[in-house]
Computed example of a mutant assay.
Amino acid sequence: MFQSSSTFHKLSRILMAPKPQRRRHFVGSSLDSGVKRARTISILTSSDAATGGDSESSSSSLMKEAFSQYAQYLNDLNDKRERVVKASRDITMNSKKVIFQVHRLNKYNKGEVLEKAEKDLAAVREQHILRLVQELQGTDFWKLRRAYSPGVQEYVEAATLCNFCKGGTLLNLDEINATLLPLNDPSFEPLQINVLDYLLGLADLTGELMRLAIGRISDGELELAEKICKFVREIYRMLTVIAPEMDDSSDMKTKMDTMLQSVMKIENACFSVHVRGSEYVPLLGSADPSYSLLGVSDFDQ
């Protein structure tokens, strides 16, 4: 009993005794090194602060200058794109006028119409294409191809249509580019029509030839219509071979369908002339006095 009570008192004194404070022991070297590193990062000497400040300000000014130059370059490029688009629209509009002029052609006014069309086409080159060349010289004109491509395609269409109506042949790319060389400054890389724009313009040519053939059939010029039919069929055959290799041109694949429709319309018209040729002669008689409708002379007026 005594032993248990004495033991109880000993335990109570031990438990009730104040606890000694725990001290954290740090290695002096690690503590000192940690403090020194903090001071080294946060506190700079006067010479270090002066040097660091100059380098930061100089790099910041260089970045601002580079950014301002790039922004100015983008602004100039956008302004140039707007002027190029305007020139392309003028080329398109005036090239269409040349095409409309050619559609007035018949066997009586061929020389007059083609002479006027060639003068108008030369005016397109000397005025509107010249503006385009001046805008693009000295720059990477491939960056702005999408801006002027529609006008170039329309010009190719007008030039090839005039050449076919004049000589019955196809105006090739080298011949078209040769007409543009005098417009270029010899000190710069010359602006030349690329193969893609030439082929796209050639695809549009078939539609105009289809309209021309239908008009010639209605005027009784069957030989010219058949010649146009063979010419358009040859262009379609050639582009059918080339188009599958042009993976980057969705425009060509779309125009191939339209071109096929033009070929079929010309073929059907020419075939109908051979099958029902007498019905395509004007019903009111012919300018030839020996002409008679169904074996009966023209009615007396």
Rank of each mutant, 00 (worst) to 15 (best):
G52Q: 15
P182E: 11
M238F: 05
D298Q: 12
L191Q: 04
Y280T: 09
M238T: 14
M264K: 07
S218P: 00
S29C: 15
P190M: 01
S58P: 00
I129N: 05
Y73D: 10
D197F: 00
V102Q: 03
D32M: 14
L180H: 10
I214Y: 07
E221W: 02
V275H: 00
T139C: 01
F141T: 01
K86W: 03
F299G: 07
K64Y: 10
Q301T: 09
E154D: 03
N75K: 01
G295K: 15
Q261V: 05
M16H: 09
R22E: 15
M252G: 00
A66E: 06
S33F: 04
E56G: 02
F141P: 02
Y73W: 11
F26W: 11
L181Q: 10
S12H: 06
K19L: 09
I99E: 01
S4I: 06
E245H: 14
E245K: 13
K253N: 09
R233A: 13
E226L: 10
H25Y: 03
I242Q: 12
E267C: 02
T206L: 00
V156G: 06
K110D: 08
E157T: 14
V133K: 03
K36M: 11
E115S: 13
D248M: 07
K255D: 12
S55D: 03
N268T: 09
I41K: 15
Q192L: 13
L293E: 07
E223C: 03
A117N: 11
G295H: 08
K265W: 00
E65A: 03
Y236V: 13
L170A: 02
M264W: 00
S61F: 07
G28R: 02
S30F: 06
I41A: 11
A159Y: 03
Q21F: 10
M246V: 02
A225D: 01
S68M: 06
L200R: 04
P186L: 13
L199R: 04
F26D: 03
L196T: 15
Q301K: 10
G168Q: 13
V195N: 10
T40F: 11
V156E: 06
D32F: 05
A117L: 10
E112T: 08
E112F: 11
D298R: 04
T206F: 01
L77F: 00
P20H: 10
V195C: 02
G277T: 06
M259A: 15
F8I: 01
C270Q: 09
D79V: 06
Y236F: 11
Y280P: 01
E234F: 12
F2Q: 14
L31S: 04
Q153A: 12
A71F: 09
M259F: 10
R89M: 10
Y291D: 07
A123N: 15
N75D: 12
V241A: 14
L15C: 10
M252V: 11
R233G: 15
R211D: 12
I176V: 13
